[in-house]
Design a protein around this nucleic acid. Structure first.
Lengths: 349, 349
DNA sequence: GTGAAAGCGCTAACAG
DNA sequence: CTGTTAGCGCTTTCAC
């Protein structure tokens, strides 16, 4: 039975089909279908015969024929930025878990934050006739999204909202999260608080920056504009931006990073400059990634419930047709650790 | 054009098909197909007419019909353990990159190391008629794998080899990696070196343990059997195992962890016991995850080229039919940092 | 260069 | 309960 073609069968013959099984079992095609789709009813004896024949022929029904007929695929598309980023990984685990629960498959795509790549993936998923798409959109390709939506594909955006598109999204309470982080630093006596954030066109970017500013406003401390830096989420540019922030003539005494990539860049830059957290500079960030609690000192963060968000997004995108899907905002949780201390004190916070 | 059904269109009508486009453009169905599949040739004027009609109707070809006819899906399945683990995330990025290059889609599955879940996913992927499957197998479900293979699906295993299955795999040089880590510790004067590893049924587990033992053998130091602990890769059990290792009546002076989950568990356990690295205990591990270089002291690791492995695995699984696919072993790289020091010295290594 | 026709593997009526 | 039939949307001969 086994040969040495390295796991590859020539498979010259056609695959076994329901028709073959029907012939082998001496029944009609429809009856075989009824057995494998668990619909209608078949006499126990017939079912037996069919199952025996199927086993004999190593028959496995093909989703291709089924899906074409049923006009639904049970597949959903998931477009993230970078699946090696723990936040997206957790989110994806949430999606996988609830997709599996509902018998759905997940086609994974990584846009790398590149609009062109995103467009290609949208087209691809449309061609595949996925039942739905969950995406962290780049903010571009509005036409593609609209077109996919009009084709009847259910779409849910995560983390970011797109204007004029009437597509529901699931986001965290960005403003509140950033505000609490900033308030905390302000309360510790800091007044030169650096902000390392993403592009403000993105919902998360804009809202987190707004929270940062609101916190300042609330206590009447002016935002130092040269301490507000927006950057793309790649390691290199983030690192360069963090460094620039630290090289300010009058450097910040505290830093808010709005996600884990930015936080990692900030921490690395701080170390490379020979500074120490929290003695020389306090650091807080978004995302409770594993390393946040492993570094010394452990980092105070605003945690996003990534897994649950993935689960909710899946439920939203799979909601019964006709059911109205409401946008959802989820709460963040602030986890106090030891990466910030009062400005004019030698004791940790 | 826009309504308020939350990104969901009733889509009562059927989708636009090639036939509709053909009618609208006043040409035959076959001609439309030729335009969209870029095969044969069509008069520029005709092509123009067709493209205009397609645009007008917002037509997108369906992969369902195409795949059914062509008997190939351009999809590949990827079964990892846990996509939120950075190692699998990097691997997946590599898979996605080269899959995209070749116009393939990736169906993602996470087995959670559970054989039953794995079996369900294999069945699912077979039904979907994926062109190939890349998997980190649990080590069970040999029948399912065999059956999938016999159905003509190309399979590539990663990280682990399964006996009697004649399925090619891509693994790192586990034995050498573990041996170097252990030799390094031995050279530093350690003789009570703890081993925190995975189940030895797994290729990686068995080989890494073998490397650990070989290093001892080479210098004539006896392995302390009560310092060898095998555990499952979940956070909780790994932590418990690490703790047990540290609570040995005569505790180890150094520790080898065979992946990042185990390394994280070890580091956490060490801290929780109030010990410090490397002064109280040296720690080295597999996987150059981001946090390895972020903690203090940074951890000495054996790095696996996860991204490239994903890329290679994809090439292997997509190799031209008839081409013989060779199993592949990839080299690891040892990255020296500061988490180990000589046993009887007060200076770091 | 183009149209007509025959299926790919399956489901869903519809008779019997 | 079960067999027959007509497609799902597309590709692919085969004539014209």
């Amino acid at each position: 039975m086994s040969n040495a073609t390295g796991g590859r069968r020539e498979n010259g013959g056609k695959q076994t089909t329901m028709r073959d099984v029907a012939v082998a079992a001496g029944v009609g095609l429809g009856t075989v279908s009824r057995v494998f789709s668990n619909v209608g009813s078949v006499a126990p004896a017939t079912r037996e015969k069919i199952e025996a024949a199927a086993r004999e022929l190593n028959f496995r029904p093909s989703a291709l024929g089924r899906d074409l007929k049923r006009r639904t695929t049970n597949n959903i598309g998931l477009i993230v930025t970078d699946i090696s980023n723990n936040f997206y990984g957790e989110f994806a685990q949430g999606v996988l878990a609830s997709a599996k629960e509902q018998g759905r498959h997940v086609i994974l795509c990584a846009s790398g934050e590149d609009p062109e790549t995103e467009r290609e993936y949208i087209d691809l998923l449309v061609e595949q006739r996925v039942d739905g798409i969950i995406a962290f959109p780049t903010g571009h390709n509005l036409d593609s999204w609209r077109s996919a939506r009009d084709l009847g594909i259910n779409i849910v955006f995560a983390d970011r909202e797109l204007p004029d598109l009437d597509i529901p999204s699931i986001v965290v309470d960005n403003e509140a999260g950033a505000r609490r982080l900033t308030e905390y630093l302000l309360a510790l006596g800091h007044s030169r608080i650096g902000y390392l954030g993403g592009p403000s066109e993105l919902t998360s970017g804009g809202q987190r920056e707004a929270g940062y500013r609101q916190a300042h406003l609330d206590v009447g401390v002016a935002v130092k504009e040269d301490l507000v830096v927006r950057t793309r989420f790649t390691r290199d540019t983030a690192y360069a931006s963090a460094l620039r922030l630290l090289e300010n003539p009058v450097p910040p005494t505290a830093l808010v990073a709005t996600n884990n990539v930015l936080g990692e860049a900030a921490l690395t830059a701080i170390r490379d400059r020979g500074l120490s957290v929290p003695d020389d500079i306090s650091l807080v960030m978004f995302d409770d990634v594993p390393w946040a609690n492993l570094v010394e000192p452990p980092i105070t963060v605003v945690a996003q419930p990534a897994w649950q968000m993935g689960q909710s997004a899946t439920r939203m995108v799979l909601a019964a047709d006709g059911e109205k899907v409401q946008p959802q905002t989820v709460k963040t949780e602030m986890v106090l650790r030891r990466s910030a201390r009062p400005l004019h004190s030698s004791a940790p916070a």
